[in-house]
Design a protein around this nucleic acid. Structure first.
Lengths: 144, 144
DNA sequence: CTTGCAACCGTACCATGGTACGGCCCCTAG
DNA sequence: CTAGGGGCCGTACCATGGTACGGTTGCAAG
């Protein structure tokens, strides 16, 4: 029987590639996040005599992983995300709000910049469309 | 007399640091753009016997530099910007429009993503503000 | 003409966020 | 029992967009 990626018959939890699949990332990315301290490295089973077993991951890990991806989409760096994850278990609501609001401000600024850029691009496309000959004045599209 | 940065009495053009100042970037960044082919390296004066003079830059260079910064703000990579600059002198309006419109699409998608993220952050800040005790459920802010 | 700042040049290094490689170990199907 | 695919690990490498360093000229004021 061909085992599907990371799917084990036993409900013992996901392997690393199962976790990766669940989060839509590569195995190496998981390991990278572990090195960065964003994801835990579960204990390897049976002893530790220079050869443990295979680590298993659960729903909690999947949630953390998904959170990481979402927070990244919100523009947080991995360092900031590490802080958020640490905060999640703790009591420092003040700090959490601070991070959130700083990021909201940055996002607003970024959206504004993108809208400016969008306008400039529309002008550029327009200028290139409106005349038929001669060079297209791309350089001036972003003037003003 | 103390020469101001890059300002020469003669109207012979800007030095590299004058150009950098005009574009709001560092000298090393100018040199980097030159290596990347985004800015020209003007001929050095008197001969070339293993020791030219000092390069001079003009208004055209300043415009290109400002364009580069604006285009970067619009999310173009330096590679794409190089293409735009090449296009500017040429006739390929089709290609120019194509680049512009592709970028506009990407910008729209990015804005949408940022707005989603902004919402999530607002929820997170709200959740952290609305209760006084227990851990703040940051992980769930990005759910859904 | 000395002194000293700038320009010039090649090359090395940085941060970010991964991605790849090679060697070894474990585990299970066939 | 053996082969093969994954897991595990350290370490190297990649792209992007710069930033820094060290040594050599240029050049202009004092």
């Amino acid at each position: 029987m061909v085992r599907l990626q990371g799917v084990t018959p036993m409900a013992a939890g996901l392997t690393i590639s199962g976790l990766a699949g669940a989060g839509g990332v590569g195995v190496e990315t998981i390991r990278y996040y572990q090195r960065r301290g964003l994801l835990a490295e579960p204990r390897r089973p049976h002893g530790s005599g220079m050869a443990g077993g295979i680590r298993r991951y659960g729903a909690e890990d999947v949630r953390r992983l998904r959170f990481i991806r979402s927070a990244q989409a919100a523009g947080f760096t991995l360092g900031e995300i590490a802080e958020l994850l640490a905060l999640d278990a703790g009591q420092d609501r003040q700090r959490a709000r601070e991070l959130a609001e700083t990021r909201i401000g940055a996002i607003d600024a970024e959206i504004a910049k993108l809208q400016q850029a969008r306008e400039a691009l529309r002008r550029m496309a327009g200028a290139c469309a409106s005349t038929q000959d001669g060079p297209c004045p791309i350089l001036t599209a972003f003037d003003g």
